[in-house]
Amino acid sequence: MIRLRARDLAVSRGGLRVIEGVDVDLSAGDALILQGPNGAGKTTLLRTIAGLQPPAAGTIEAPEESIAYAAHADAVKPTLTAAENLAFWARVFGGSDRGVLARFDLADLAGRPAARLSAGQRRRLGLARLAVTGRPIWALDEPTVSLDRGSVARFTDVLRAHLGQGGIAIIASHLELDLPARVLDLRAHRAAPGRVARPSSFNEAFG
């Protein structure tokens, strides 16, 4: 049974705390949507959960190598074709890329160099990578940017299927996604500079 838990999590960006006191408890089939204005720390929180940076405080519990991270950048190489890009990540993560291009409506573009894909098509290729990683927890940073309405619906279907298979998703998004998801508003967890927001963590520093 897959489970992702974070307790009393605080994350920092450039040495400054941006969020603190975040508790997350997700099990198979759960989705969590992160909301907050620009600079609220959505990306930083996702990068911390993905393991790219250590938390400033608190703990994250997840099975090893279970998280697939999709950032703002699509990690698509312009001189490789769509199929080559996907096949590379499938081999790196040890997954299979069979049928994935079709699920993201990219089958017709498989042989085209990624440089000649539109922004939305490239985005879809970047998201298709999630499916080839074979990892159960998806950490998604604004996945719907530059997607048209049809593609958003299609991606929501993929997400729903992923959750239905016992996956977990954490999504930072401004768009309303048609998903049964909990919402975490990061404004409530904003770290207050110069003010001791949480006495317990203050004592921790001296304890």
Partner: peptide, 14 residues
Amino acid sequence: HEDGSLDLLATSPL
């Protein structure tokens, strides 16, 4: 690093 591949390589099994 620019296109985000390095983040993914860092979280990959390699």
